[in-house]
Simulated assay, not measured.
Amino acid sequence: MAGVSQNNQSPTLVIGKVISDLPNIRIQYNGIVLDKDDLWINDYLLTNHTRTHKGHIVSATQYRSGGGGYALFESHNHDIDNDYTDTETTTDSDLKAGYYVAMFPIQDSTDGTKQKYVVLCHITRGWTL
């Protein structure tokens, strides 16, 4: 029973170390070197990944004092009540040689035979902070 239980445990999160940058990425884990054919990579870690942020802002500008004593220059502000859209594009990758990454082992469903790894995020050792 113990052997069957051990064989059917869910995989655990693992830590790999990037040893070669993109586009020919290589990550070392558990004594083996994984290349791009062994990896599924979170889009947010890649160069030129674009995200769009949308929202609505309600606020007001700060009061500004006027000059010259004229009414049209007296202290005033402007209300802000607008929708906004902002686009962010990454200009660099979070997958550089020497970086550590959190990975999750999976069975590749595209061919059903090879173990692959999902690269989830770039991580940092706590004691280095």
Score class of each variant (00 low, 15 high):
Ala2Leu: 14
Gly3Phe: 06
Gly3Ile: 09
Gly3His: 10
Val4Gly: 06
Val4Glu: 14
Gln6Glu: 14
Gln6His: 11
Gln9Gly: 01
Gln9Arg: 12
Pro11Trp: 03
Pro11Ile: 05
Thr12Tyr: 05
Leu13Tyr: 08
Leu13Val: 13
Val14Met: 10
Gly16Trp: 02
Lys17Trp: 03
Val18Pro: 02
Val18Arg: 04
Ile19His: 04
Ile19Leu: 04
Ser20Ala: 15
Ser20Leu: 03
Leu22Glu: 15
Leu22Met: 14
Leu22Pro: 05
Pro23Val: 06
Gln28Glu: 15
Tyr29Gly: 00
Tyr29Trp: 04
Gly31Ile: 09
Val33Pro: 10
Val33Met: 06
Leu34Phe: 04
Lys36Ala: 07
Lys36Gln: 09
Asp37Val: 01
Leu39Asn: 06
Trp40Lys: 06
Trp40Asp: 05
Ile41Tyr: 01
Ile41Ser: 01
Asn42Asp: 11
Tyr44Lys: 09
Tyr44Arg: 13
Leu46Ser: 09
Thr47Glu: 11
Asn48Trp: 03
Arg51Ala: 08
Arg51Val: 07
Thr52Tyr: 03
Thr52Gly: 00
Lys54Leu: 00
Lys54Met: 00
Gly55His: 02
Gly55Lys: 01
Ile57Phe: 05
Val58Ala: 11
Ser59Gly: 15
Ala60Trp: 09
Thr61Tyr: 05
Gln62Arg: 12
Gly66His: 05
Gly66Glu: 08
Gly69Val: 09
Tyr70Ala: 11
Tyr70Leu: 05
Ala71Met: 03
Phe73Val: 00
Glu74Met: 11
Glu74Pro: 02
Ser75Cys: 04
Ser75Ala: 15
His76Trp: 08
His78Cys: 00
Asp79Met: 05
Asp81Met: 13
Asp81Asn: 15
Asp81Cys: 13
Asn82His: 14
Asn82Pro: 00
Tyr84Ala: 00
Thr85Cys: 01
Asp86Gly: 01
Asp86Ser: 02
Glu88Ala: 10
Thr89Cys: 08
Thr89Ile: 13
Thr90Phe: 07
Ser93Met: 04
Ser93Ala: 07
Ser93Asn: 04
Leu95Cys: 11
Leu95Val: 10
Ala97Leu: 12
Ala97Trp: 12
Ala97Gln: 15
Val101Asn: 03
Ala102Thr: 10
Ala102Asn: 06
Met103Arg: 06
Phe104His: 09
Ile106Gly: 09
Gln107Cys: 10
Gln107Lys: 14
Ser109Ile: 06
Thr110Ile: 04
Gly112Asp: 14
Lys114Ala: 09
Lys114Ser: 13
Lys116Val: 10
Tyr117Thr: 11
Tyr117Gln: 10
Tyr117Ser: 08
Val118Ala: 08
Val119Met: 09
Val119Ala: 07
Val119Leu: 12
Cys121Thr: 15
His122Leu: 03
Ile123Ala: 08
Ile123Arg: 08
Ile123Cys: 09
Arg125Asn: 14
Gly126Pro: 02
Leu129Glu: 07
